[in-house]
Simulated assay, not measured.
Amino acid sequence: MKVIAEPGEPQIVIVKTFNASRQLLFRAYTEPDLIKRWLGPADLDLVVNQLDPRHGGRWRWTHYDKAGKGYVFHGLYHGEPTPERIVQTYEFDQAPGTVYLNLITFDEADGVTTLTQRTLFFATEDRDLYVAGGMERGIRASMQQLEDLVTELKENP
């Protein structure tokens, strides 16, 4: 897996290859029961409060730590989500007004899918705060959990 955050650039690019179909990865991104099994660090519990994967649809979820403190994330889908790509805004309630855009693509060849997530920020400073907040730990944990999930789903559809 690659996590690319070039200095001075207001974006983060994540690239990971999965031995799974893009349809399976798309399901993992758009079905609430699957999202809560892979998204976020394992030491946080995830509740999917809302998920409407269609153009203009809203999504919202809350991560809870062991003390019960909630961390709320929310956004909108732009364009119709498909197994080829998802476009969505993303906002963290503890940083109101700092909105970023995620473009997630699923490129499949011979049963292997490369997931690329481009996260675009309005300002490099916003990106830098996101990185400083431990983003890479959560992304690495999530991508490993996603890999485990799609492997399990392939074996037990």
Rank of each mutant, 00 (worst) to 15 (best):
M1D: 11
K2A: 04
K2E: 13
I4L: 14
I4Q: 12
A5Q: 11
P7Q: 15
G8T: 08
Q11F: 06
Q11C: 13
Q11I: 06
I12M: 15
I12E: 05
I12P: 03
I14Q: 00
K16M: 13
T17V: 14
A20K: 12
S21C: 03
R22Y: 03
Q23L: 10
Q23F: 01
L25I: 12
R27W: 02
R27V: 02
R27E: 10
Y29H: 15
T30L: 00
E31D: 03
E31G: 01
P32M: 02
P32L: 02
D33L: 10
D33E: 13
L34C: 02
I35G: 07
I35T: 08
K36C: 02
W38C: 00
L39H: 04
P41K: 08
P41S: 12
P41E: 07
A42C: 03
D43S: 14
D43T: 14
L44V: 02
V47P: 07
L51N: 06
D52M: 03
P53Y: 04
R54V: 07
H55A: 15
H55M: 01
H55I: 01
H55V: 04
G56V: 09
G56T: 08
R60L: 04
R60M: 09
R60D: 11
R60S: 13
T62E: 14
T62G: 08
T62F: 09
H63V: 05
Y64M: 10
K66N: 15
A67V: 06
K69D: 13
G70L: 01
G70A: 00
Y71K: 11
V72N: 04
G75E: 10
Y77D: 06
H78I: 11
E80T: 15
P81W: 09
P83D: 05
P83W: 01
P83S: 01
P83T: 02
E84S: 08
I86D: 05
V87F: 07
V87H: 15
V87D: 10
Q88D: 03
Q88S: 12
Q88K: 01
T89V: 10
Y90S: 10
Y90I: 05
Y90H: 13
D93V: 10
A95Q: 13
A95L: 12
T98H: 15
T98F: 14
Y100N: 11
N102T: 08
N102D: 15
L103T: 15
I104Q: 01
E108N: 05
E108G: 06
A109H: 11
D110G: 07
G111L: 05
T113E: 01
T114K: 14
T116D: 06
Q117E: 05
T119C: 04
F121C: 04
E125H: 09
E125F: 07
E125C: 02
D128C: 07
L129S: 07
Y130S: 10
Y130I: 00
V131S: 00
V131N: 02
G133A: 15
M135K: 06
E136I: 00
R137T: 14
R137E: 12
G138L: 10
G138F: 11
R140I: 03
A141T: 11
S142G: 15
S142D: 10
S142H: 09
Q144D: 09
Q145A: 14
Q145D: 06
E147H: 05
E147F: 00
D148Q: 09
L149Y: 08
V150R: 01
V150M: 03
V150D: 03
T151L: 09
T151M: 09
E152Y: 13
L153S: 02
K154F: 04
E155V: 08
E155W: 03
N156R: 11
P157Y: 09
